[in-house]
């Protein structure tokens, strides 16, 4: 709505420091409980499980003493593409997912989604998940769901929302206090809050005062599959060359971007 009220357009994004990430999985747990993601009877069945935030383990494939591993947390990249032309948004036949030009957040409206799963096929990051069943919560746990996030039903796709409900609530607080703008720390995602290593930094990529603005400019910063033109808003940082190389499909003779 900022067009009418002349605010500066925001572009929320994340910088994840892979040198700091220990792979503890706290972000995954925090994300699930924040966003009412239900447990599955068998969480080892990966075709069935839903992980808006997922930590991958990368290996450099070398043997001792050069062996090295890296953990890579993967939320939704909230691709901007070319002016909002994200892969998932452009294929959705129902406009159940749209690109918010005021925040840069890619939405998913569960009640509009009819489960064709084109978006899942289009997403190069596997960030989208399908609900094969209605959610079942362990006895009594339904009382502890987050009221600010609507639960999903069978037959719809879901994904990370950058905890945009926290943005809504932060705005609510600002308006009630007579402010128009929110501070950097008033809107943070659950995973960024939970990370014990402070590997995840979240903020407005357009705002010079936010840490992400500075961090994304580091020469050791890269994005996943950047060359597809998805223009993601999640940046990764690593001082290790092989990790940066793993971010895209480079040919043997090519040098990694960063």
């Amino acid at each position: 709505m900022s067009k009418g009220s002349k605010h500066k357009v925001k572009k929320f994004g994340m910088v994840i420091d892979l040198d700091k990430c220990t792979g503890c999985g706290a972000c995954m747990v925090a994300c699930m409980s924040e966003n009412n993601v239900p447990f599955k009877e068998n969480e080892s069945k990966k075709l069935d499980s839903i992980t808006w935030m997922r930590v991958y383990k990368l290996e450099n494939g070398k043997s001792f003493p050069e062996a090295d591993i890296c953990f890579l947390p993967r939320p939704c990249m909230h691709c901007e593409g070319d002016r909002g032309h994200a892969p998932c948004v452009s294929v959705c036949p129902a406009i159940a997912t749209d690109y918010d030009h005021n925040t840069g957040i890619v939405s998913q409206i569960y009640t509009r989604c009819f489960g064709c799963r084109y978006c899942m096929a289009a997403c190069p990051y596997h960030a989208r998940y399908f609900n094969w069943r209605d959610p079942v919560w362990p006895e009594g746990m339904e009382k502890f769901l987050n009221p600010n996030v609507s639960p999903r039903m069978r037959g719809v796709v879901e994904k990370c929302s950058f905890c945009h409900h926290r943005y809504q609530l932060a705005l609510d607080k600002a308006y009630a206090e007579g402010r128009d703008k929110i501070e950097e720390d008033e809107y943070q995602t659950a995973c960024a809050h939970a990370c014990p290593a402070n590997a995840i930094t979240f903020g407005d990529l357009n705002n010079k005062k936010h840490s992400v603005y500075r961090l994304k400019k580091n020469p050791n910063t890269f994005r996943l599959l950047e060359r597809l033109g998805t223009n993601p808003k999640v940046y990764y940082h690593s001082s290790r060359e092989w990790v940066r190389r793993a971010g895209d499909n480079y040919l043997k003779h090519e040098a990694a971007k960063a």
């Binding site: 709505m1 900022s2 406009i95 749209d98 690109y99 957040i105 939405s107 600010n148 809504q168």
Partner: peptide, 11 residues
């Protein structure tokens, strides 16, 4: 002057 994007009113 703007209808707003989906996530303005949905959660």
């Amino acid at each position: 002057g703007d209808k707003g994007s989906c996530f303005q009113c949905h959660k």
